[in-house]
Amino acid sequence: MGGLVMAVWSLFRYRNSDGSSKDWAVKSNPDGSITTRWGKTASKLPGVSHRNGVRQFDIEKQKQTKGYVFVGEVEIDGEGNVVFPGKTSALSQMPGPDSNLAPVPTPPVEALYWTVDCRAERAVRVDLGIEVRRLIGVIQSVSDQQSKPQQDWDGWQQWLDATLNAETFELSGQIKSVQGVLPWLFLLTLKSKGFKGVEIAMATETARDLSVDLKVEQDVLAFFGTDLDSIRETAEVLGLLKPRLNLAVAMSDTDDCWF
């Protein structure tokens, strides 16, 4: 069973414009060589190769320039089974002959990853840049009203720089829970605008794609330590939620029109 010994690898992920993704993992060996594995995002990476004469750092940088984003350190056995930290191995998760096949609960969100591929026509890219700056201004005003300090997200500057001259671009990154919910709401709003030729994708560490419907993303809200009611006002300002109808105000604005 020597082939099933677990080893620590660095895992990277590339998001395709259609929402699918592929993974690539690398580790250094005692003899100075490196081993890589790859495949579609799944619990097993079937592709494998061994290389000499190249540093892990250099090949990781090459992958990152191609759009791969670092996911984290994982364990992979000799057959390519991938195990994230804190998770049990794929082998131990296999049901025994006497076990009941109960549904497996959805794991909590532990990280968010995003990519954007902008290949739109120039007029659309100009409009995108205008909208990026408008949204950041709106979010900045909302953020100023919040007392909870949050770690700054480098994506704000990435988006500003990328859309400054209305050129085509590709970006990718991660949103950490300590950075708060606002970066995610910003990306969701841009995605909901549906700019033609601008592909924005967001996913969890388990490659579950996220929708722009906040009502079905309760686990992501929990990841940021919040809920739908707490962010409703901000989401309404951004256009992600329709404003609730205030019947008292609506009635006060009408005259006696009963027949």
Rank of each mutant, 00 (worst) to 15 (best):
M1T: 15
G2E: 13
G2N: 13
L4K: 09
V5T: 14
M6E: 13
M6R: 11
F12D: 10
R15V: 13
N16E: 09
N16A: 13
G19Y: 02
G19E: 01
S20P: 12
S21D: 09
W24P: 00
W24D: 01
W24N: 03
A25Q: 06
A25L: 06
V26E: 05
V26T: 12
S28G: 14
G32Y: 02
S33C: 10
R37N: 04
T41Q: 04
A42F: 01
K44Y: 08
L45Q: 03
P46T: 10
N52D: 13
G53Q: 04
G53P: 01
V54F: 09
Q56P: 06
D58S: 10
K61Y: 01
K66Q: 15
Y68N: 05
Y68A: 03
V69M: 11
V71R: 00
V71N: 03
V74E: 05
E75W: 05
D77C: 08
G78T: 07
E79W: 09
V83C: 10
F84R: 09
P85D: 07
P85C: 05
G86A: 10
K87Y: 12
S89C: 09
A90N: 12
A90V: 13
A90G: 00
A90R: 00
L91F: 07
L91C: 06
S92H: 14
P97G: 04
D98G: 07
A102V: 09
A102Q: 14
V104M: 10
V104D: 10
P105F: 03
P107Q: 11
E110V: 04
L112H: 01
Y113I: 00
Y113W: 06
D117K: 02
C118S: 12
A123K: 11
V126N: 12
L128I: 02
R133M: 07
L135N: 09
I136N: 10
I139Q: 06
S141H: 13
D144R: 08
Q145T: 14
Q146W: 06
K148I: 12
Q150V: 14
D154H: 04
D154T: 13
L160Y: 08
A162W: 06
T163P: 07
L164T: 11
N165K: 08
N165C: 12
E167P: 02
F169P: 04
S172R: 01
G173M: 03
Q174N: 06
S177F: 03
W184N: 02
L187F: 10
L187N: 03
T189N: 03
T189F: 00
K193D: 11
G194I: 04
G194W: 08
F195V: 08
G197V: 07
V198S: 05
E199N: 14
A203I: 00
T206H: 04
T206F: 04
K215N: 15
E217M: 07
Q218F: 10
Q218E: 15
Q218R: 04
D219G: 06
D219C: 03
T226G: 08
D227G: 04
L228E: 13
L228C: 10
D229H: 07
I231T: 06
A235P: 11
L240P: 05
P243D: 11
L245N: 07
L245T: 15
L247W: 12
A248I: 15
V249D: 15
V249E: 15
S252E: 14
D256T: 06
F259R: 08
